[in-house]
Amino acid sequence: METTQYLIETKELCKQFKDNLVLKSISKTISRGEKVVIVGPSGSGKSTFLRCLNLLEIPTSGEVWFEGKLLTGASEQEIDRLRAKMGMVFQQFNLFPHMTVEGNITLAPIKLGLMDERQAKDRAKELLSRISLLDKLDAYPSQLSGGQKQRVAIVRALAMNPDVMLFDEPTSALDPEMVGEVLDFMHALADDGMTMVVVSHEMGFAREVATRMMFMDDGKVLEEAPPTEFFGNPQNPRLQNFLSQVL
């Protein structure tokens, strides 16, 4: 039986690229069901932090724990296994262009032996009908709009039944008219109880969905608060300055 452990915990997490210290000892926890939205100026380390959570980026020092297991220092196989429980959505979608929508969604569950082909295909259909894209089952990514691509990318991650979803600016590469459909889908996921960590500039979405806001600047988390406080009564001058620019 699991104790009251955190879903994700970082301890003194540091990341350095050459002589550029990008994350400066971040110790944070994320519990099941939380929706954490991270904001901050460009280059502040938001993506790097997110990518360290599933070890796409190897931390220079410090620890990352996931579901009570130490990711940093785990074996390759163990990392792969735990990563499968952490869905990730990228700014550039990163769909597999040589595969159909169905192929994109079913590849990992089948290759990892989590589902047989039948089950994986059924799951793909179920998820696609949820976003009204069942008719795109046999389409290739190049035949989809940006908004459709990103929703398929989210579905691809969901097909693995992850325990947490990580989003790195999921709407930044979209035409404005397509942002809504992606945010709506993410909103619905949040309502279903999915644990989410989202890097985003969509403040409206953050206000509505976040249970906790994080402000990152210069490799550190400078402020954390529920959205009402975060937007209504920011403490850190840098956050005040940041908010005055983006709102």
């Binding site: 796409l56 990563r83 429980k85 550039q92 990992a108 290759k111 990892l112 693995m160």
Partner: peptide, 14 residues
């Protein structure tokens, strides 16, 4: 694009 490798790895694929 290196995003392809990252997408695969993020799904837990070795």
């Amino acid at each position: 694009d290196r995003g392809q490798m990252e997408a695969g790895r993020s799904l837990g694929l070795p």
